[in-house]
Amino acid sequence: MTGDRQRRFEQVYADNRGPVLGYVLRRTRSPDDAADVLAETFLTAWRRLDDIPADAQARLWLYAVARRVLANHHRSERRRTALGAKLRSKLASAGYGHEPHPGLDDVAAAFRNLADGDREILALAGWEGLDAGQIAVVLGCSRNAARIRLHRARRRLAQALYHHGTATLDLLGENA
């Protein structure tokens, strides 16, 4: 039983550690926080292994956990985990992140100025590549609600981009 449990966890971990770390690193600039959140996310997975859905749904479940752990992390910093010391050290020394694609500074600025909820749902679509149904799983809402929120967020992004000038509007024009 213990062996089965460990094998299941190792499989979930191997399949998802990269994308989940990506999810976290795209939302925090602190290597310490990223290591903590990743560790806490997979610790939750270990403890709730029987609740993790199979196949691709597992990743959505993990994104949902990571999202909540990130939110909690801000106010519970004194409970920093000791897990993943090597990962923390590796992230701290590696440095990560890159400049936005040339010419997209306006997009980055408009995105940064959106409300948190709009940013997150657009990020789930654009960064994690999720569709409305998958976003619904991560956010814990209905597919229809996710679709509506995504539509509204896109509209607000378009409005924000409009205020940044025509060059960006040209980019948006390709979206028609």
Binding site: R17, G18, P19, L21, G22, L25, R26, L38, L87, K90, L91, A94, Y96, G97, H98, P100, H101, L104, V107, A108, F111, L122, A123, A125, G126, W127, G129, R154, L157, A158, L171, L172, E174, N175
Partner: peptide, 21 residues
């Protein structure tokens, strides 16, 4: 489309992250 726009301002890719862990 705007998903592509957003993807191009992502701070890093999943592949970058996977290489770090």
């Amino acid at each position: 489309n705007d998903d592509v726009l957003i993807s191009r301002i992502a701070p890093l890719s999943d592949a970058d992250a996977a290489a770090m862990i």
